[in-house]
């Protein structure tokens, strides 16, 4: 799977003015690679990730998954595609309060009707959440919720994984755990794109980009 985004722009209209968040950004993410996009807060990294993940339509440009232009798909088709092929770790708290940890984790698999119990148990074990299997999100710490979001993004073994600040709220040990897990997904054939302003992520990166005030630039390692 190769993800290619060309000439991406994103503008928002507020009441008083038009705000440009991304200017003409190009990015490619390939299977087997872990790509890190770094930059300061407010530089447009999260918006770019949403565009790449099919969650926010760009004002200009296109996003291809191999030969598929995802923004030419119908909402139904894109949603099915997202469920099957994309794992997304959103910034901040991302659990549904009415579901237990286990139910939150297997939500994407439940949606597609696939069996994921064994993989779910393994991910819980790997991310240190086994004891919290039947707990509800309100009983979890920020770090535990973060790890739950990561686990849920991986449950359907997606071919593309996006993680927005996946190590926020995590201590060093758990940050390493999560980054190592994402690296393994890339080594297993997934295209992994991480947005992070922390240096820790860079050492796992195969490719790095830097975002400054909406302008994306590939960095040579």
């Amino acid at each position: 799977m190769t993800l290619t985004a060309k000439s991406i722009t994103k503008n928002y209209k507020t009441r008083r003015r038009q705000v440009s968040v991304i200017y003409d950004g190009d990015i490619t993410a390939k299977s087997g690679e872990l790509t890190v996009i770094s930059g300061r807060s407010g530089s447009g990294k999260t918006t770019l990730l949403s565009i790449l993940g099919g969650l926010t339509k760009p004002s200009g440009g296109s996003v291809f998954y191999d030969e598929n232009d995802i923004y030419s798909m119908s909402d139904d088709k894109l949603s099915r595609y997202r469920n099957a092929e994309i794992g997304f770790v959103p910034q901040g708290q991302g659990a549904l309060s009415a579901l237990t940890v286990f139910e939150n984790l297997i939500l994407p698999a439940s949606l597609s009707g696939s069996k994921a119990k064994d993989r779910a148990e393994k991910l819980l074990e790997r991310l240190g959440l086994s004891q919290l299997r039947d707990a509800y999100p309100r009983e979890l710490s920020g770090g535990e919720l973060r790890r739950l979001s990561v686990a849920r993004a991986l449950i359907n073994s997606p071919s593309v994984i996006f993680a927005d600040e996946p190590t926020n709220d995590l201590d060093d040990e758990n940050s390493e755990l999560v980054l190592q897990l994402l690296k393994e997904q890339a080594q297993g054939g997934a295209a992994v794109v991480i947005v992070s302003h922390e240096q820790a992520a860079l050492k796992y990166a195969d490719v790095t980009y830097r975002m400054d005030s909406g302008r994306l630039q590939r960095e040579e390692k």
Partner: peptide, 9 residues
């Protein structure tokens, strides 16, 4: 929004 990320149309 979280439901959208996991594939809800």
């Amino acid at each position: 929004a979280v439901l959208r990320t996991v594939g809800f149309s």
